[in-house]
Amino acid sequence: MPDYFWEDNQKEGLSFKFRRKPTTKAQCDANWLSIQNRIAGKKQRPIYPMLKPILVAAGFFMLIVLTYFFVNQNFRSTEQYTIVQTGFGAMKRIVLPDSTEVMMNANSTLKIPSVWSDASQREVWIKGEAWFHVQKKIITKQNFIVHTPQTNVEVLGTVFNIKDRREKSVISLEEGSIQLITDKNRVLTKIVPGQVAIVTKDKKMSIATDNHVQFRSSWQFNQYHFEHTSLTEIAEMIQDNYGYHTVIDAKLISTKFLTGDLTAKNIQDFIKVISVAMNVRIEMSGNTIYIYPKQ
């Protein structure tokens, strides 16, 4: 040990110094031998530097793939959906993979995810009008969500009718309970059977009570219920469900109302019954229906 070491210690007021336990040459050599054997097995140059560009490329690839899946999950492309459409004057009954029954009215579009699993949420998108009988999932308690452009209807198992026409969603509940989630304030609104919720384009919601809520879905049995319904509303219905433009004589607007039930299998039946019940003259010309007062 060098002399300065002693002096150093003396300066710091120590009257002793330390001694490291010496090791033998044999010990050192034996230690090195093991190291040599171990590093001989390893490559001189580790494999990583050569792999680096490949790993970076693989990383980027993974990133792209993950992003693709992520984006897909959030904004699923139409390829992963089944789209069911009904033409004017046609209805369609659909049974979803979870046994939920959907009756689609004319001129409606239903978007259904192609893959249904117990893990994923049950959800469909509707444009137009449809009647739903949602199967309750007792074990998994999976919600069923019906999206309309105006609102989202969250249900556990229930029977209801959704009519989304003219930028207005009318949800009428027959059984069970549903919640409406409108995007604007994310407030949940609970609806009980017999209530009708109306959500407009600007997400304004109003709730009304209808004692004959079941009539709102009777269209599926070709039955139509009217209660002081104006001719204008009936004309709109004709346009929505049968695709005919309607022209109403000015004299009739806001003077003619209809109350009662009628059964009509097609547009011909429909206008025949309407003309009799409302005492009007109806003429069909190409794609247009003209409604005149009876002379």
């Binding site: 490291r20 010496p22 090791t23 010990q27 050192c28 230690n31 090195w32 590093i39 140059r45």
Partner: peptide, 22 residues
Amino acid sequence: GDVQSFKALHHHLFEGLYAYAF
């Protein structure tokens, strides 16, 4: 990649490192 230099390094540092580890 010179193993001999690495060996020299080992021989020089072994005693201290071993003692510290011990």
